[in-house]
């Protein structure tokens, strides 16, 4: 079975807010989301299609104090919060 992949919605703009993280804006929905620095790192990763496991592995690999279990939970929460307006299934970009 092929794992589902996700990527950044192409219509969304991202403005880097430095130490504060980043702000995403979806002009189709006129909606904004603020990301902390960790969220911004995941957003950058999603420039290309990624599976949930790949996102979790990125978090665990870059934040040594995060367990694999916690990384997977964080990745799930990230996708739950940002799909479908900011993050979309890779084959379903608006």
């Amino acid at each position: 079975m092929i794992a589902k992949t996700w990527r950044a919605n192409a219509v969304v703009s991202c403005v880097d807010e430095g130490e504060d993280g980043a702000m995403l804006y979806n002009p189709d929905k006129d909606d904004t989301v603020l990301l902390n620095p960790t969220g911004r790192a995941v957003w950058t990763l999603l420039a290309a299609p990624r599976t949930l496991d790949e996102i979790a592995a990125h978090l665990a690999g870059n934040w040594p104090d995060v367990t694999a279990e916690q990384a997977r939970k964080d990745a799930e929460q990230f996708l739950d919060a940002l799909a479908p307006d900011f993050v979309v299934p890779a084959a379903d970009e608006s």
Binding site: S13, C14, V15, M23, Y25, P27, T32
Partner: peptide, 8 residues
């Protein structure tokens, strides 16, 4: 403007 993420 798009590169600076101007919204409207």
């Amino acid at each position: 403007m798009g590169g600076l993420a101007v919204q409207r």
